[in-house]
Design a protein around this nucleic acid. Sequence first.
DNA 1: TATGAATGAGGGTTCATTCAT
DNA 2: AATGAATGAACCCTCATTCAT
Lengths: 192, 192, 192, 192
Amino acid sequence: MAQDTKTRILTSAVELFAENNYHGVSMTEIAEGAEISKGTLYWHFDSKKELFREIAFSGMDHFNRLFTEIVNKEGTSKEKIKNLIECVLETLVDNLNILDVFRNNIELINNNFKDTLELKHQQNIGVVTNIIEQGIAEGFIKDADPNDIATIILTVLFTPQTKKLLDGAENVDQKIDFIYDFLMNGISREEH
Amino acid sequence: MAQDTKTRILTSAVELFAENNYHGVSMTEIAEGAEISKGTLYWHFDSKKELFREIAFSGMDHFNRLFTEIVNKEGTSKEKIKNLIECVLETLVDNLNILDVFRNNIELINNNFKDTLELKHQQNIGVVTNIIEQGIAEGFIKDADPNDIATIILTVLFTPQTKKLLDGAENVDQKIDFIYDFLMNGISREEH
Amino acid sequence: MAQDTKTRILTSAVELFAENNYHGVSMTEIAEGAEISKGTLYWHFDSKKELFREIAFSGMDHFNRLFTEIVNKEGTSKEKIKNLIECVLETLVDNLNILDVFRNNIELINNNFKDTLELKHQQNIGVVTNIIEQGIAEGFIKDADPNDIATIILTVLFTPQTKKLLDGAENVDQKIDFIYDFLMNGISREEH
Amino acid sequence: MAQDTKTRILTSAVELFAENNYHGVSMTEIAEGAEISKGTLYWHFDSKKELFREIAFSGMDHFNRLFTEIVNKEGTSKEKIKNLIECVLETLVDNLNILDVFRNNIELINNNFKDTLELKHQQNIGVVTNIIEQGIAEGFIKDADPNDIATIILTVLFTPQTKKLLDGAENVDQKIDFIYDFLMNGISREEH
DNA sequence: TATGAATGAGGGTTCATTCAT
DNA sequence: AATGAATGAACCCTCATTCAT
């Protein structure tokens, strides 16, 4: 029952934080969403900040696990980049909430959990950087700062507009290819 | 004098909304920042939401003016794209808070001003789309949906990580070139 | 109106703190007692602690003024001690609230305002010490540590039981004489 | 084991009530102090008030036993008064928290247990009154209302300042003599 | 006996908003 | 135009208390 309650709280909180920035969500709403009393909410989480922190951290860790898995698989950098894009875009389509939580709370994260979350974020970038380095070594990716490239890839993938591109699309796969192509080749006309 | 007060309010509000999401900023703080009383604040703006709306709208209009100017100038699409990138990145570097205001308040905008602001946003994309169309016609840009391309360009330019890339950089021009190159050619190794 | 409101708040707060220890009094009750809203209460005082502080400090200062007045008057130490006792006992009879506030909140005072209030308390003892020193010089008071004597006098005067002695008494003057006699001569049978 | 738990609860509660007035102490803290769960705490005591009541009553009874013992011993009133003072001051020095519990909760006691505790208090005064009556009969104590005298003695002995006098003292015995002398002879210069 | 989980009323405090001056 | 004072709803959080296990 206890674990069930905690899960219900987290589900309710993620849902609300995904819609309405941290300050726009009240503990009362979270409790109502989880169908428990406010007292119970505070029995499971010491404070609103702590609750948010747990969500944010576990979200970051979730991506870290996914990315690490991709890196450790056998395969070319090309395959891994495709995996990476598919993995993020699938998350975007299937379970957008965590990403929206981050988007809605950039300032909060920066002001309160900057140190720890920035660290986790840099770790995630670091994992992706491995793929880029492999790609450079394989002659598949241009020889620029791999960390910058990893950063800009995640930037594009985690951007609200990317989500919007998918939302309105009749053919999702086609949009995914568009994004992949953009990441790989940019917008210029290729002439080879 | 009246105009002066209103300007001071807007300056104070932009500064605060750029740091601390809408719900994290109080009218008291805005009034204090503008060095006026709360009564005066409410004399100039009917409500907090109205104040925010004015800021968001004028921010959008600001970019609309800049982009339209670029489009209407004589020149190739290549020059215009370079202009566009420089224009946005300069705004980023000059630290025009309005961008942070948007970033911190995506959810508020989505929930409250979606219709009107989305319209303005689409107008801005539309302006940039003109450049892309010109580029496609000139054989400079690949033949994909020009609206999608415009969207993804603005996405990359208006992203916090892009700003961060510039912040930490020793050589800003070099980073600008990096972003320009990324937009044009992506991350793959070019082989021509 | 503003000053009036502040006075009403203080009156309400003193009354309640005199009956029910700090933690037993709510800001809601204080506001209700003053017939204002809680918002107004917080407009005048930043916090509950701050409100209490103001009451405690002003109470101390009140006695400091009274005691200083007595010390500075012309007269023998005997007259001054009588004045002192009458002054405190009159306050006990007329306006017990402030004293009860102190009594009900010894622990709070010790834990929170110890430094400042202890200082004020020592100042008050210091003023009374002047009288004792004069008494010793005049050969009227025994030659012991004047600070200790001043302390024990104020102790007896400010004690709840002293108040109780007066409460139940048919003849208040007689009880006052009893206390005066106790302070001067103790409980032993005098044999001169 | 059951007895052990109850004792641990009482010890924890006395310690906390001695530091932080009734309303400033939570049942959670008491349970934590006793290293038991809140459920267990409520198994042993029906309510917070009931727990406090038990502490207050047993404290009163403790002094009643001590005082009765003194009264019933053979000896002069002088010896008994010395015994009484020593007994209370030793308790003060040994830092029996129960005295601080009373001091911190005068208002609570007055508002809730007035009838029963006042009765017990009057019983204690009554026991001391026996000593005073003996003293008057022996010509050792002045011929005033013995109940008033007993009241004022306990007042002085149970006062926080009395404890403070002892706390700071280099020579405790000397301070005890000072208090004894004050009780017996007051502050005036003796001329016999 | 003992526990962890749950409750809901109430605590201090903040805040957008109003209004007489 | 501008202000200070007032309002009351809502907010985060604590607490005494209960109860199934």
